[in-house]
Design a protein around this nucleic acid. Sequence first.
DNA 1: TTCATATATTCTAATATTTGAATATATGAA
DNA 2: TTCATATATTCAAATATTAGAATATATGAA
Lengths: 113, 113
Amino acid sequence: MNDYLSRIEELKLVAHPARIAILDELSNGVKCVSDIQDFLEISQSNVSQHLSALRHAGVIDFYIDGRLRCYYLRQPFILDLLEIIKKDYPAELPGPECCPVTKKGKYPGKRKN
Amino acid sequence: MNDYLSRIEELKLVAHPARIAILDELSNGVKCVSDIQDFLEISQSNVSQHLSALRHAGVIDFYIDGRLRCYYLRQPFILDLLEIIKKDYPAELPGPECCPVTKKGKYPGKRKN
DNA sequence: TTCATATATTCTAATATTTGAATATATGAA
DNA sequence: TTCATATATTCAAATATTAGAATATATGAA
């Protein structure tokens, strides 16, 4: 229940184009900051800020190779998330029965009106 | 690509405890606003605002039964999202090889330092 | 009609997020 | 040492999100 809420927090943190792009890249393996910068069109400090936010949330982590920080994915949840972000879906779910023109129908719940 | 970005927008919109709770409830079938209010502990106008935001994004829709607005899920993507939000995951992914104490290792990328 | 119920909208204050600019730090090379 | 590279941090401005209060609207019942 608490875990459920923290997953929503994580979702919120991650729901950003640059962050998703970073995570998508990391899902293919370790990347250092400069390599991440190369395919993102944002400033160095901004890349760093995104990495920092993701790291503080435990979504990613890094190890060091000389001057390079080698970032990698830590949260398994992210892999599934990336997958469904890229998946194709039908335009919409089959709806409940209601008139397609007037959009009127019967409420199946117990509330009486 | 454009679709990919709009899915991230949708993710951002949806990454909120009340909205996830609403969508989770709707994933079990049609609900009218009052029934949604009953299990959420937020004001009527706030429920309405969340529903309005979700509807404008095409995530949900409604039909009418008298004074009731019967909301239902429209976006198939949301069902998969709800599923992974509730799924259990191992604490972390198997990391790349690096010293667990000093956190030092070799960068596998082509960048030379 | 009039009323009560169901729901939406508008406005506003509080708060959070995002970004760029400037600056700081750490490390390997010379 | 000194320097250049790789990366982080801090600050401030711009912007977006959230929630409550007040009010509006639509509908069925009386």
